[in-house]
Design a protein around this nucleic acid. Structure first.
Lengths: 232, 232
DNA sequence: AGCATGATTGAACACGCGTTTAATATTGAA
DNA sequence: TTCAATATTAAACGCGTGTTCAATCATGCT
């Protein structure tokens, strides 16, 4: 295991220092590991093994595990925005192409993991997505037109959350519905989602006691009290 | 800090061994810590400090950190089902009361953390909630009646996911909307959720190219390809 | 050729983790 | 009182982690 890239082989005259090739391999391996197991459970040693290098080299190139994470964040963010710009105008197909490319599916997994962790890293993903949904509401999306609200931002945030939810709970849905994989789970859910988006689910509501136009009774929504900071 | 419950005080003749009082204090502290930081980031030492005991005692009473987690799971599950049975018939008020009781809000946070972790522990919560939503669809909920589908189970699963989503992303919503806390976030979202549940969001759809009744074009839903197992 | 710079590695360091262990304190039973 | 059993603790163990370090290798520049 010592003869590696001898000089007599086809070595394409790479730079003396700064090996971008190895650094890219480490970054790709890190994105794979992070998207599969999340940031905390992923180890530097695991990334190094997946990239075929030593753990020390990972730190040498990216400073720290946190630095590597930031580099992964930037790469995924730029790749997804580039992919979206590339497919501008296609609208619906952009979503479809997102899942044909296996690299993109990994990036989406990375995004979801980042979104659910309590760090700040995932926030720009969410903000960016809310902006995207808001543009869909205003300009339409793939021929669909949407009911508008006075509070477009709040409406967009709600719809973004709704759109992200099935992917976040895909494992729980698989186990509950007995579906084999994420694709079949989404196929099972798709008609119900379309029904919801098209006509809602409430067939008849109880007669309101208060004046019309005021605060409406809340639907059976599940909320929570977050205990993020230390309550000491 | 050594004089604790001397025998001359009002000691209600508790058992010689088996101190249920201390064990309960450890369990409560563990639920607090787990609900605040998740299972993995929570340390046995942290729980012990919060309960005012030594780390070894935590292991002594519950065998291991995993055993303590199971005990917490059982306690939270029983407490929530008991609370629900207690409020049977109230329907809407049951949801409201869930958030008036600070203990219950902690339990809900615990539930959400468990739901999003890749372990099996949260599955029964999700299954239970889907069953509850399914009963709402069939029997109605607080005077509301719902549009039915042939695939009631799939419909219930979808609605359960939708109902859980805002709470799961409450932090991201807070940052995006600039809301101060979860309560104001949900207040901001409530009318949009009611709009969605009542009449949907799609005002007009593009004319379908295929035969009606067949596979409908998917709405702009965000999905993902899960890379759970090791792909080696 | 000779040097400087960076890539790369194996070993070790320092730390925090869950857990174990030996010892002490406490308490009901005899 | 004496004994056995449990509660409780302080200390340490074993392990995995992110990171550091000294050494070696490879390559561009002069």
């Amino acid at each position: 295991m010592r003869s590696k890239t001898p000089k007599d082989s086809a070595a394409p005259t790479r730079a003396p220092n700064s090996s971008p090739e190895t650094a890219k391999r480490i970054l790709d391996a890190a994105i794979d590991e992070f998207s599969a197991h999340g940031f905390q459970k992923t180890t530097v040693r695991g990334i190094a093994a997946a990239a075929g290098v030593s753990p020390g080299l990972v730190i040498h190139h990216f400073g720290s595990k946190e630095g590597l994470r930031t580099a992964c964040d930037d790469h995924v963010f730029e790749a997804i925005t580039a992919k979206k710009a590339e497919n501008a105008g296609y609208r619906v197909m952009a979503v479809q192409m997102m899942f044909d490319d296996p690299t993109m599916t990994t990036y989406v997994d990375y995004l979801l993991k980042s979104l659910l962790e309590p760090t700040e890293h995932g926030q720009r993903y969410f903000d960016h997505y809310v902006d995207l949904v808001e543009s869909y509401i205003v300009e339409g999306f793939a021929g669909y037109e949407f009911r508008r609200s006075e509070d477009t931002r709040g409406q967009a945030a709600m719809l973004a959350v709704m759109a992200l939810a099935p992917a976040m709970l895909s494992r729980r849905l698989e186990a509950n519905l007995g579906t084999a994989d994420v694709a079949s789970t989404m196929t099972r859910l798709a008609p119900h989602l379309l029904d919801l988006y098209t006509g809602g689910v409430i067939a008849s509501a109880p007669e309101p006691a208060g004046p019309p136009g005021g605060a409406a009774p809340t639907p059976p929504t599940f909320s929570a009290h977050e205990t993020g900071e230390d309550p000491s």
